[in-house]
Amino acid sequence: MINFSKVSKVYGGAQGVRALDQVDFSVAEGEFVALLGPSGCGKSTLLNLVAGFEKLTEGEMLFDGQAVSRPGPDRGVVFQEASLLPWLTVWENVVFGPKVQGLMRNEYEPRAHEILKIVGLEAFHKALPVQLSGGMRQRVGIARALVMQPKALLMDEPFGALDAQTRLSMQQLLLEVWQRLKTTVLFVTHDIDEAILLADRVCVMTARPGRITKEIPIDLRRPRSIDDLTNSEFTHFKAQIMTEMRGAHDPH
């Protein structure tokens, strides 16, 4: 579904910062992949390339077999701060995509209602984003991406700005939604627990130059829930990833 081969991204000319260096990486259809790394390791850059927000400097990147030239509704992006349009209501934010795409109302409205129900916001469809809590805003962010029925969901630290408790409930929600829809997900995070809990595979990234140093398959049983955060298998993966990240931080 997503294929990177020898992709580099350099900011600011030939002498600039190498945000990504010769990255080979792929995500299969229906797979949930987490990109894990410290800030500045290029994980958001990688996501932005798939989204079409930025252009690569070297190499080749294919989405669903085609080179990406611009953003589009086949790749639903969930932003860190939700980035809802603040002058539109929850409902208007969710149907923005189908509307500008010129879809028929009777085609997208039932779907929008259903998705708002899934994320638990059907009672708030008339509210404005400022009237919502951070977690609720992010639910709208997820809903407006899902309503387009994208081939992949690209999530850029979507729960990073939330408090610990809200983050847990959002992770639970995402697990349930994914269990239902089985969409391809590329999930960027710096939270080890979050990466293990959600993903089928965790790709550990390092900074300067930005590279994927290790890919760890997470074969925890599905469906998962936040209760898995405390079981022994989980702890085993966590120890493994922590060792990997420590090793990546101070090279021998």
């Binding site: 953003p71 980035s83 500008v100 795409q101 387009m148």
Partner: peptide, 12 residues
């Protein structure tokens, strides 16, 4: 990000 979000949703 508002502009990016709109583009992502298929806005011209």
């Amino acid at each position: 990000n508002w502009i990016r979000a709109a583009l992502m949703m298929g806005a011209g």
